[in-house]
Amino acid sequence: MSLPSARPLPVKVAALTAGAALALVTAFAGTSSAATGAEVTPLTDACSIAGTGDPHTCAQAVTWAKNHITTTYHAEYYNACDHIVGLAYGFPHSGSVTAIAHWRAIPGSFKHAGDRSVPAGGLAFFSTSSSGHVMISIGSGEFVSNDIHGNGTYTKTTIGEIESKWGASYLGWAQPWFQYNH
């Protein structure tokens, strides 16, 4: 019995950044396009810490966010969205001075501009009249965000609520990449 010859992958791995190459290898792990004859597409719509060096996984960050939901005022949550997502991923802070600075610092291979299908653990970014906004997805179109239901609170919300209540423009979502460790 002869095995089918392997076909080259439709992506030039040498041209990818180290983080993107790791994500690509992870997406292809355990899959053989040569054996099935099917083209394999990298999984880019799931939250992943591949290539980020984050201390917490996406699932751990979601658990952290859910466990910190509060409707009472907490001074450390007021006007601190970017700081909060850093905490969820195990950092003492995000490393960026604002949410919009965080979005701009994230390499393009980690961003999904305009994509509203944010996986659990993904970070949703907005442009506002001030410093921007970021919140964490907990899945199924739900997010946890600070200040939307009162200053210093940390509650469930949606992309649409942030847009309509604050007049924010949705930028897209990103894998949990932080300036703190890059």
Rank of each mutant, 00 (worst) to 15 (best):
M1I: 06
L3S: 12
P4K: 10
P4M: 13
P4C: 11
P4S: 12
A6M: 13
A6P: 02
P8Y: 04
V11A: 08
K12Y: 07
K12R: 12
A14H: 06
A14V: 08
A18G: 01
F28L: 13
A35V: 07
T36Q: 05
T36V: 04
E39K: 11
E39L: 09
V40H: 09
T41P: 00
T41C: 10
T44F: 10
C47G: 01
S48H: 05
A50N: 12
D54R: 11
T57L: 02
T57Q: 07
Q60C: 00
A61Q: 01
T63V: 02
W64Y: 14
A65F: 05
K66H: 11
N67I: 11
H68G: 10
H68L: 14
T70I: 14
T71A: 15
Y73F: 14
H74W: 14
H74K: 15
E76F: 15
E76C: 12
Y77S: 09
Y78K: 09
C81E: 04
H83E: 14
I84S: 07
G86L: 13
L87V: 03
A88T: 02
H93P: 00
S96A: 14
T98Q: 09
A101K: 03
A101P: 03
A101L: 04
H102D: 14
W103D: 00
W103Y: 10
W103A: 08
S109Q: 07
F110L: 08
F110I: 10
H112W: 03
H112A: 14
A113H: 00
G114F: 10
R116G: 11
S117F: 15
V118W: 12
A120I: 10
G121P: 03
G122F: 10
A124D: 00
S131Q: 04
S131W: 04
V134C: 02
G139S: 12
G139M: 08
E142D: 09
F143M: 10
F143N: 04
V144S: 02
V144R: 02
V144C: 03
V144P: 04
S145E: 00
N146G: 14
N146L: 13
D147S: 09
H149T: 01
Y154W: 03
T155F: 06
E161N: 09
E161A: 02
E163G: 06
S169T: 08
S169V: 15
S169F: 00
Y170I: 10
Y170W: 04
A174Q: 06
A174V: 01
F178C: 02
Y180R: 11
H182K: 08
H182F: 13
H182D: 14
